[in-house]
C-alpha cells in the first residue's frame, strides 16, 4: 500500500516521487501554475490554510529549501514554525518521535521534514495522527520530491511538454536525492530519453534499471540535449577518494560554454543549488542566457504551495 495516498487516491503525504501516478504529478504542476499568479498580486496571499500550523523540522541545515517552504506556507496563510533541530533537543538526546509527539501536542497540522538519514520522513509519516501530513524536504540520499517537482515545473514552463525531450543529469548522481527524484518524475511524465553523465565512481551501479542511459563523457552525453541539469558536487567527496581534485573534475565534467554548445542551441541549464562555481559549472554558464537557475527558485514557491494546499485540504472529511 502506498502510504502517500488516501484509499481514494488523493495525496496524503509527499515522501517520494517514486510510485506517484502521472495524474498526481500533473495535478501538482497545474495547481502550481495557478499559484504563480498569486505572487504577482497586490496581496500575495490566499486564505486556504488559515488556522493551520506548519512545522518546518530541519534536522539538517538548508537555506533555500526551508525559506521557500516558509514563504509558500505564509502565502497560503498558514502559521509557520521553523525548528533547526541540529541545534536543539536532538543534541540533548531526544528521540525523533518524541520531538514529533511534542510538536503534535502543540496542534501541528503538517510537518516539513529535512533529515540526513534516508527514510526519516517515511518514519515520521507512519507515526503521526491521521490529520497530520508530512512533506519530505530531503532525506539522506533517498528523495527530495519538491525539488524534483519544481524542476519538472521549470522544464514544462520552458519546453511546454515532456514527450519530445532529451534530458541530461550531470554529476554526482550516486549521492544525490535530487537526481533520484528527478529521474522518477521525468520517466513518469513520459520523457523519452533521460541521460545520466558522470565518472563511474559517482554513478550508482545498476542506475540503468531506473530507465536512464549512462554516459561517462560530456561530449557524447550532452549532444542533442534539450535540458541539462547540473548536480552539486559535495566537497566531502574529494576526501573519500572518489575524485582526484575539483580542478580535475571541472576539466572533465564541469559545464563550460564550449561543452554546453554541444547541446541543442535552445537547451536550458538547471541546478538545484547551492552551486560550486568553477567545480561543476562555470560562472559564464550559471549567469548566462541559457541558465534558468534563479527562475527555479521562484517556481519552487508555487510548487510548494501546490503540494501543501493539496495535502491540507479535505482532512476533516
Amino acid at each position: 500500500m502506498n502510504v502517500q495516498l488516501t484509499p481514494d487516491g488523493r495525496l496524503r503525504h509527499l515522501l517520494t516521487l517514486d510510485g506517484l501516478p502521472r495524474a498526481i504529478l500533473t495535478q501538482i504542476l497545474d495547481t502550481a501554475e495557478s499559484f504563480m499568479d498569486v505572487g504577482e498580486r497586490e496581496v500575495k496571499k490566499v486564505p486556504l490554510l488559515r488556522g493551520k500550523s506548519i512545522f518546518n523540522l530541519f534536522f539538517e541545515p538548508s537555506t533555500r529549501t526551508r525559506t521557500t517552504f516558509e514563504i509558500a506556507a505564509k502565502r497560503l496563510s498558514a502559521d509557520v514554525v521553523n525548528l533547526n533541530i541540529a541545534t536543539s533537543s536532538q543534541t540533548k538526546g531526544e528521540a525523533i518521535l518524541d520531538t514529533v509527539d511534542n510538536l503534535a501536542a502543540m496542534h501541528a497540522d503538517m510537518f516539513v521534514v529535512r533529515h540526513s538519514q534516508s527514510g526519516a520522513a517515511h518514519f515520521i509519516a507512519r507515526h503521526v495522527a491521521p490529520h497530520i501530513s508530512v512533506v519530505n524536504a530531503g532525506d539522506g540520499r533517498h528523495a527530495h520530491p519538491t525539488q524534483g517537482l519544481l524542476d519538472m515545473f521549470t522544464i514544462r514552463r520552458y519546453k511546454g511538454a515532456f514527450h519530445n525531450l532529451t534530458v541530461a543529469i550531470v554529476g554526482d548522481v550516486l549521492h544525490s536525492r535530487v537526481a533520484r527524484s528527478q529521474i522518477h518524475a521525468l520517466t513518469t511524465l513520459g520523457v523519452p530519453e533521460v541521460r545520466v553523465i558522470g565518472p563511474k565512481t559517482l554513478l550508482p551501479t545498476g542506475v540503468e534499471q531506473m530507465g536512464v542511459k549512462v554516459f561517462h563523457d560530456m561530449e557524447a552525453g550532452l549532444a542533442g540535449c534539450d535540458v541539462v541539469i547540473m548536480l552539486r558536487l559535495q566537497n566531502e567527496r574529494m576526501k573519500g577518494a572518489l575524485l582526484p581534485s575539483s580542478q580535475e573534475y571541472f576539466k572533465f565534467f564541469g559545464l563550460t560554454p564550449e561543452k554546453l554548445a554541444l547541446a541543442k542551441p535552445d537547451a536550458i541549464v538547471m541546478h538545484p543549488g547551492p552551486m560550486n562555481r568553477g567545480v561543476e559549472i562555470a560562472s559564464e554558464v550559471a549567469d548566462g542566457p541559457q541558465s534558468v537557475i534563479l527562475p527555479q527558485v521562484t517556481y519552487g514557491i508555487a510548487v510548494r504551495m501546490a503540494v501543501m494546499a493539496m495535502l491540507a485540504g479535505g482532512t476533516t472529511a
Binding site: T31, V46, L48, A309, G314, A317
Partner: peptide, 16 residues
C-alpha cells in the same frame, strides 16, 4: 478554488 469556505472539508478542486 483558493477562497472556498469548504476547503478544509472537501479539499482542493482537482482542476484549478
Amino acid at each position: 478554488s483558493f477562497y472556498r469556505d469548504d476547503f478544509s472539508r472537501i479539499g482542493l478542486h482537482p482542476q484549478v
